[in-house]
């Protein structure tokens, strides 16, 4: 037995869960898939007095399309997302949404993804995690519930720093809503990690909608290059209205890299990460803007 003692609560509804969060707030941790939290409990890096297990909460999981918006419940397993939304999956009718399935496929190993949840990954907010980058690039909305009601949070407001989000202690992340992207949207997620299944040294998520050879809409976010997911609105803005020539993409990538302040650690120096970010960003954008998507494979 590794974790410090805790009180275990297993509510069945969202209403009960937010009541418990109101009651225990700061002393409680929400247990979803547990693939990051339980190791922290086992190392006793986290010692919450109360664990609120949301795995039995009804209405918190599942993937739905409502009025053209994709809605993914917080306790949806990463494996389910991977199966449903990767290219060729049954839910991949929208070229942008396939990015979520691609991102999920990079998380840990199969055995982690069968248990790990979408909401857990987002609320944990590891700066090197793939899903926060994917939802940022897609311009998704995170939905939080408390006893006071529901609020919608944009990714750049939600991800506040190292393992830090905008969620208040009495709030539960219930779902993420992903807008529809136009026809002709392509997405690409590229990642470099030391070993298969490791967190990214750097990952780049890119979504690009094209019409008549020009970019009409774009979203770009990076993981592993800052204290949290780094959105790149300047890169997206620089592409919109333009023909995405390699020269333009290279300039945008160089501009972004000059402004990045990536961490230095045992997994890579800041300089290495900056160089990696530039290369991956160029390749991801070339892939997402090319009709065949051959660029990234090359």
């Amino acid at each position: 037995m590794k974790p410090a003692p805790f009180q275990y609560l297993a509510p069945r509804s969202i209403e009960e869960t937010v009541e418990l969060l109101r009651e225990h707030g700061e002393d409680a941790k929400v247990l979803a898939g547990g693939q990051s939290l339980v190791p922290m409990l086992n190392f006793r890096l986290a010692r919450p007095a109360v664990l609120i297990d949301v795995n039995s909460v009804t209405g918190l999981d599942g993937i739905e399309v409502e009025d053209g918006t994709l809605s993914v419940g917080a306790t949806t397993r990463q494996r389910t997302l991977e199966r449903r939304l990767s290219a060729g999956g049954s839910g991949a009718q929208d070229g942008g949404w396939a990015l979520l399935g691609e991102a999920a496929g990079h998380i840990g190993h199969l055995h982690i993804r069968t248990r790990g949840t979408v909401g857990g990954s987002l609320a944990h907010a590891d700066p090197a995690a793939e899903l926060p980058a994917a939802v940022s690039a897609l311009g998704a909305t995170l939905v939080a519930r408390s006893r006071d009601g529901e609020r919608e949070i944009a990714p750049h407001e939600f991800f506040q720093g190292f393992f830090t989000t905008a969620l208040r202690p009495d709030e539960l992340l219930t779902r993420v809503r992903v807008p529809s992207w136009p026809e002709g949207t392509r997405s690409c997620l590229l990642e470099v990690s030391r070993r298969r299944g490791d967190f990214a040294q750097v990952a780049v998520a890119a979504v690009v909608a094209m019409a008549d050879g020009r970019v009409v809409r774009a979203g770009v976010a990076l993981a592993g290059v800052g204290a949290s997911t780094v959105e790149a609105p300047d890169v997206a803005a620089g592409l919109v209205g333009e023909v995405p020539r390699p020269q333009l993409i290279a300039e945008l990538a160089d501009d972004l890299c000059a402004r990045l302040d990536p961490p230095s650690d045992t997994h890579g120096s800041a300089g290495y990460r900056r160089a990696l970010a530039g290369h991956l960003l160029q390749r991801a954008l070339l892939d997402a803007t090319s009709p065949t998507g051959a660029a990234a494979a090359a």
């Binding site: 547990g34 693939q35 339980v38 297990d53 494996r79 199969l110 055995h111 248990r115």
Partner: peptide
């Protein structure tokens, strides 16, 4: 489904 037995509490 394959899972990590060490990252799941028996109660779950």
């Amino acid at each position: 489904e394959p899972v990590r037995g060490c990252l799941l509490f028996a109660v779950q």
